[in-house]
């Protein structure tokens, strides 16, 4: 790989300066994605600014009753946190379903959110790819696309975002705190990621020198506590999702749905919040038939390709299965 410089950042603002001052520099979290991509020649930063010593490694309650998770918290530590496990089971389950024990011990919250797609063409520098080299084309469309997007893709790119964690965060309406060249700001997780549109080279709305400092998880409510993450994968462990769902549900005393939260993984360029299904369900009875109808409504917008057409049904089934479990009703 190309020789590069390495620096340890001592404070967020300094880290941001180090990046702004040197185009081609990158933040280094656990390195489990970035270093792989450097070995493959997909990324070739001139400077790595290590952000794991920034003391962004705390999990603390917020004044408003939520939880603030530092961007440097390791995936394994967050998954094991008793507060997370009790108040946001889907989040802990999503983290634990990802990668392997060793990788989760290294991976950070910030790095997890900004990991790149697993599209095999993106990872192979001997082939064209609009995301890696804008304007070169998208061979996945007619090539290996079984794992790629069915929703919100563009003719320029059908990549999926691979994170499990981000799917649960999307369902929870988490916010991302950022320190950037222009100061601090916060974004809804849903607004962090972009659709590929004309420019798939950008996964998010962030500036290269924007540092994620924390993720803020809102105050826990019933639809957070009564939640789960269900991931369908080809191997029982150590495999990215073929399809996944993060779901939370609360029922009114009359048994109708008072709140439902659904996000899908492995179907789009970003975690896919299933807003249509949610609004179709709210106020209605919690039955498998209702779940199925809402799932079909959500997936009606799908534009699958031959080898990933099955993801439509898979995603629908995941929604129905997850909500049925949360509602305590039997599927047919």
């Amino acid at each position: 790989m190309k020789p590069f410089a390495y620096a340890v950042a001592e404070a967020p603002v300094q880290a941001v300066h180090q990046l702004s001052a040197r185009p081609g520099a990158k933040f280094l979290g656990g390195g489990t994605n970035l270093v792989d991509l450097m070995r493959l020649g997909v990324e070739s930063p001139e400077l790595l600014v290590d952000v794991t010593r920034l003391e962004l490694d705390r999990i603390e309650p917020t004044a408003t009753g939520g939880i603030l998770v530092g961007a440097g918290v390791r995936n394994s530590d967050l998954a094991a946190d008793p507060r997370i496990r009790a108040a946001y089971p889907m989040l802990s389950q999503a983290l634990l379903s990802g990668a392997s024990g060793q990788l989760r011990n290294m991976a950070t919250v910030g790095g997890n959110l900004l990991q790149r797609t697993r599209c095999v063409y993106f990872q192979d520098v001997t082939k064209p790819c609009n995301k890696r080299e804008p304007g070169t084309g998208c061979p996945a469309r007619t090539g290996a696309h079984r794992d790629l997007a069915i929703l919100g893709a563009s003719e320029h790119c059908i990549a999926t975002h691979p994170s499990d964690f981000a799917v649960a965060l999307a369902a929870l309406d988490a916010r991302v705190q950022i320190t950037g060249p222009a100061g601090d700001r916060a974004l809804a997780l849903a607004d962090l990621y972009r659709a590929p549109d004309e420019d798939p080279s950008r996964d998010t709305v962030l500036d290269p020198a924007d540092l994620i400092t924390a993720v803020e998880i809102p105050t826990s409510r019933e639809a957070h506590r009564n939640s789960l993450y269900r991931k369908a994968r080809d191997r029982a462990s150590y495999a990215f999702a073929v399809g996944s769902v993060a779901a939370g549900l609360s029922l009114a005393p009359d048994g109708t749905i008072s709140e439902v939260r659904i996000a899908l993984g492995a179907v789009a360029h970003k975690p896919w919040r299933a807003r249509r299904a949610e609004s179709a369900l709210t106020g209605n009875p919690a039955t498998p038939e209702q779940f199925r109808r809402a799932a079909e409504l959500e997936l009606a917008a799908a534009e699958p390709l031959p080898d990933n057409a099955f993801k439509v049904e898979l995603s629908q089934n995941l929604i129905v299965a997850a909500l049925s479990t949360l509602a305590g009703v039997e599927e047919a």
């Binding site: 697993r118 095999v120 063409y121 990872q123 192979d124 090539g143 191997r235 029982a236």
Partner: peptide, 12 residues
């Protein structure tokens, strides 16, 4: 196309 062990799965 899947020439690595992340995309060529062997049983874990």
């Amino acid at each position: 196309a899947n020439h690595d062990l992340a995309s060529y799965h062997v049983a874990g």
